[in-house]
């Protein structure tokens, strides 16, 4: 049950953000061109949601193993080297996710209380918090991916 809600949560958040951004932008073109009165805050909201889209969408991309990298060299490596490459790679990704996005992201969010957007004066905490949330979701999906690929690696070993 929890899994059923949790699994698509990143897709839901990021897709909603995307839909709102597109709608707001089109409505604003209409308001400006037809009624000559655009709303100044439309862009501010769009850009804020964009940050959510990107950092939460990062989890959607991880879930589908869609992050751009180059496996050419690793695939050419002999097996023991390959396994250590997988380990170093995992450590690098975890340190980016846990130390940078979750830890530093939280501390930046905590410090941002008096930093506000120019028009609506929304606290940047509501924007910056997308970073640790996105980092956390991504870390969970990366762990699943890692377990899956390690299992596949081990199976291969059994087969040989």
């Amino acid at each position: 049950m929890i899994k059923k809600i949790f699994d698509p949560i990143d897709d839901i958040i990021a897709t909603l953000a995307l839909a709102v951004i597109i709608s707001l932008t089109v409505i604003n073109v209409f308001l400006r061109f037809v009624l000559n009165s655009p709303v100044a805050w439309a862009e501010e909201i769009s850009v804020g949601l964009f940050i959510w889209l990107v950092f939460v969408g990062m989890s959607s991309a991880m879930k589908r193993d869609n992050h751009i990298g180059v496996d050419y060299f690793v695939n050419k490596m002999p097996r023991p080297l390959k396994i250590s490459a997988i380990i170093i790679r995992a450590l690098a990704i975890y340190s980016a996710l846990i130390y940078v996005l979750i830890y530093l992201g939280s501390s930046l969010t905590a410090q941002a209380h008096s930093k506000v957007t120019p028009i609506l004066a929304i606290s940047y905490q509501y924007i910056d918090i997308a970073v640790p949330i996105g980092g956390g979701l991504t870390a969970i999906h990366f762990t699943r991916l890692l377990i899956r690929s390690l299992k596949a690696e081990l199976k291969k070993e059994g087969g040989e």
């Binding site: 655009p38 100044a40 028009i119």
Partner: peptide, 18 residues
């Protein structure tokens, strides 16, 4: 893109566009 400039030009009757 700041409150003072936007409010000033709105007060003047213009459409302030940041």
């Amino acid at each position: 893109n700041n409150q003072m400039s936007i409010k000033t030009f709105e007060a003047l009757g213009a459409t302030a566009t940041p």
